[in-house]
Design a protein around this nucleic acid. Structure first.
Lengths: 104, 104
DNA sequence: GCTTTATTTCGAAAAAACTAGAAGTAAGCC
DNA sequence: GGCTTACTTCTAGTTTTTTCGAAATAAAGC
């Protein structure tokens, strides 16, 4: 029960960095085909070793998946995980509020 | 333009901690009336000084607002900010994808 | 098998986050 | 004015994050 909060907090923490957030959005926009580490690097413009570290964290958090294609590593978004995460933030919104309809 | 990414990354970073995520959900569920620091503390069970630190960060990130009521400090969620944040993650989803309808 | 290309792992230093006890502030009550 | 309640700020120690050059790995092509 508490594991759920921890997992989602880890996911949010993974997104709580400008470089990683830009990476995630780039990959989300790339669709199910995903994007290679090289393509991502061209977009975010950070050293390869730094990017690799950030990609690893996004994968560990479960927001991205990797697959090897030749010498390239292709990253794709886990849309299900992302949906569950955004839904979680709004879960039971205003359940205590009486006259509160404006919020959700 | 880059400020937007940075701001949202700061918001996500603010949510990237189990204690703060539990706080946000509690306050979101409390509706527009909000919840006092004391009520929040009873829910998350951390020392007052630790909680105060976390609350401050959520306010600084713009996800929560505070107002003083007597000796109490009442925190309320900024539903607009939260909505903009969750929308941002899905913005332009699959815009590069051809046969990708399943994701969004 | 050697070279190139693509990316990850190692290592190490600087910055930031997390935690919490102790002390401070501020409103309300007697 | 003094006491209580409700929080916040100060201070400090520990852990985590962030960064990136250099070295390592791994698949392909010649």
């Amino acid at each position: 029960m508490s594991a759920k909060v921890d997992r989602h907090a880890a996911e949010l923490g993974a997104l709580g960095n400008p470089v990683r957030l830009r990476v995630l959005r780039f990959v989300v926009q790339a669709g199910t085909a995903g994007a290679s580490a090289g393509a991502i690097q061209a977009h975010v413009e950070v050293p390869a070793s730094t990017l690799s570290h950030h990609l690893k964290r996004l994968v560990t958090a479960g927001l991205l998946s990797v697959r090897g294609v030749g010498t390239s590593h292709v990253y794709a978004a886990d849309y299900g995980a992302l949906r569950r995460l955004t839904d979680y933030l709004w879960e039971d919104c205003c359940k205590e509020g009486k006259a509160a309809k404006a919020c959700c």
